Amino acid sequence: MFVGHYAAAFALKGKEKDASLGMLFIAVQFVDILFFPFALVGIENLKFVKGFTAVNSFYMDYYPFTHGLLGSLLWAIVFYLLYFFVFAKEKLNKKRIAFIMALAVLSHWFLDLIVHTPDLPLINGEPKFGLGLWSNKFLTYFSEAFLLVLGLFYYLKKTKSTSKLGSYVSIVFVLFLLLINYLNIFVLPANEDLKSLTVSALFSYALFALIAYFVDKKRV
């Protein structure tokens, strides 16, 4: 899953006004932000098998540190501690903000469950889980679009615009994300070079988080 993860970021921002939407965008993708460099240096494993799924050629047979349920939970705890003791330590509701950030990190595993082939472990090795929606491009695209729009709707319901621009900028941003995902699934050729894939993935995550940060400044 790609842009569908941001549905959790929008929804969790709607639940906690003091959480940064930009940081939530980082949190929901945090395990992938770790996974690509981990795969690049050989800590985890990503192979490219042409036609492995309709959406991509990713064959991921070993990535327990980032995509095991236990691994995801541990990274969520790391995020909680960072927010509780560092980033939100001056805020009165720091415990709630830290918990929201931890939920954002953990949400990645459960949303990946929808699209992945059965390759998501609980700890390491069998059993592995995944509903396999990547076998169908249209179902993958529309499931991510549905989740993202649903998250945006909740965010808009729970926040108010501070300007005329604020009434539309988040909607435009989500349309931009949906366009990027359309190009990624239906138009662009598969990228099977791990180094360039890592660079482009990390750049995308950083860019989207930066845009989300400024989008959120237009709403309270």
Rank of each mutant, 00 (worst) to 15 (best):
K89L: 04
K89D: 05
K89W: 02
E90K: 11
E90M: 01
E90A: 09
K91E: 10
L92K: 12
L92A: 15
L92I: 09
L92H: 07
N93L: 00
N93W: 01
N93R: 04
N93F: 07
K94C: 07
K94G: 04
K94E: 10
K95Y: 11
K95W: 06
R96F: 01
R96W: 02
R96E: 14
I97A: 03
I97W: 13
I97K: 10
A98E: 08
A98K: 00
A98G: 12
A98W: 01
A98L: 05
A98Y: 00
F99Y: 08
F99G: 02
F99V: 06
I100A: 05
I100K: 00
M101N: 07
M101K: 00
A102G: 05
A102Y: 02
L103A: 09
A104Y: 01
A104S: 07
V105E: 02
V105T: 02
L106S: 06
L106N: 00
L106V: 01
S107R: 05
S107C: 04
H108L: 11
H108C: 04
W109N: 00
F110D: 09
L111S: 11
L111W: 14
L111M: 14
D112S: 07
D112N: 06
L113D: 08
I114L: 14
I114E: 14
I114C: 06
V115I: 14
V115P: 09
V115C: 08
H116M: 15
T117S: 09
T117H: 07
T117G: 06
T117L: 04
P118V: 11
D119G: 04
L120V: 00
L120D: 13
L122T: 00
L122Q: 07
I123S: 03
N124R: 08
G125E: 12
G125K: 13
G125W: 12
E126H: 13
P127R: 09
P127C: 15
K128L: 06
K128V: 12
K128D: 02
K128N: 04
F129I: 06
F129T: 15
F129Q: 10
G130P: 04
G130F: 06
G130K: 10
G130R: 02
L131H: 11
L131K: 06
L131P: 01
L133H: 06
L133E: 13
L133T: 04
W134D: 07
W134T: 04
W134I: 00
S135G: 14
S135H: 14
N136P: 02
N136R: 05
K137R: 12
F138E: 15
F138P: 06
L139I: 09
L139H: 14
L139D: 05
L139N: 07
T140L: 07
Y141P: 04
F142R: 08
F142L: 13
F142C: 10
F142A: 02
F142T: 13
F142M: 03
F142H: 12
S143L: 03
